[in-house]
């Protein structure tokens, strides 16, 4: 009996321990998400958050309207380009940083993080100063006589992708560099002792062993890309709107249910792409589970 009540107390203690974080998760994450989901099935209202009628029209619009298709496709291609650039540049940088002595590596990684301490708004304006019609690039091109009228570098797919990429790159570098640095040097030697040249050592050993870092880096980059707003707005302008801009526009025109529905479209995109990244990289294989 004594041990029974002790076990009971222990169970309560365990519950008490997990309850606060669980509660926080419920109150600040699950409940808002569920209510947002509920809102997304309602008709819009000019005076209330949503009208009383239930409707699927917002989801139907997102799924069938060619305008939304254009924006979704654009959002996905921006994400893909940023992912590809971050992967190549980030991995290469991390590959150089990883073998350095820990102190030096930390210092250089910190240096990479410094730009993250500057607000995205400031950095976007920095890009505007460089890419704008009166910006650095155009000024140089004009002064050298290569162009007469300024080029439209901003408000383009390239400007948004490049601007976002520079923001995301440090996340990729840090997570890959940490993954690479934690790979035991013996694995590379083992591969070489088994006739693998440096290229094949990379393909068959280093790359798969770094896949958890690559996966977490790519997830971070993609999710941050999907939710980035300021950079997209400032560098993309109204011509290069992505899905997140439409959430903002819908809120700005008091169509909360449509905004909620687009948010869920974003969430679904995030889940699908995350799943794809995990399926392609299979980071769990490093744990020896297929």
């Amino acid at each position: 009996m004594a041990s029974g009540s002790f076990r009971l107390t222990r169970r309560w203690a365990a519950f008490a321990l997990v309850a606060p974080p669980l509660l926080v998760f419920l109150v600040f994450f699950v409940v808002p998400l569920v209510s947002l989901f509920w809102v997304s099935f309602h008709a819009p209202s000019q005076s209330e958050l949503y009208g009383p009628e239930l409707t699927l029209e917002h989801y139907a619009t997102i799924l069938t309207d060619p305008f939304y298709h254009t924006i979704i496709l654009r959002t996905l291609s921006t994400g893909a380009v940023i992912l590809a650039l971050c992967l190549v540049l980030g991995y290469a940088t991390a590959y150089v940083l990883a073998p350095l002595p820990p102190r030096k590596r930390l210092l250089l990684l910190l240096l990479l993080v410094v730009p993250l301490m500057v607000s995205n708004v400031v950095r976007a304006y920095g890009w505007i100063a460089i890419l704008g019609r009166q910006g650095l690039v155009n000024a140089v091109l004009r002064d050298t006589g290569l162009i007469e009228r300024p080029l439209l570098l901003l408000n383009s797919f390239e400007a948004v992708s490049f601007g976002l990429m520079t923001i995301m790159l440090p996340y990729m570098v840090i997570s890959v560099a940490n993954a690479l640095a934690s790979i035991d040097a013996q694995y590379k030697e083992a591969a070489q002792s088994l006739r693998a040249d440096p290229v094949r050592t990379f393909i068959h050993v280093t790359w798969p062993l770094s896949s958890p870092g690559v996966a977490s880096g790519m997830l971070l980059v993609f999710l941050l890309t999907l939710s980035a707003y300021v950079t997209i707005t400032l560098l993309g302008g109204p011509r290069m709107k992505l899905l997140v801009s439409l959430v903002f526009d819908s809120v700005g025109s008091f169509r909360w249910p449509l905004a909620a529905a687009i948010s869920f479209a974003l969430l679904v995109m995030a889940l699908i792409v995350s799943g794809l990244i995990m399926a392609l990289l299979r980071p769990q294989r490093v744990q020896g589970r297929g």
């Binding site: 070489q192 006739r195 490093v286």
Partner: peptide, 18 residues
């Protein structure tokens, strides 16, 4: 190393976990 005719058993085995 990868052109030399040897094989090696490492101290911590260095088996590829994946």
């Amino acid at each position: 190393p990868y052109r030399r005719d040897f094989a090696m058993v490492f101290q911590n085995f260095a088996l590829f976990p994946h």
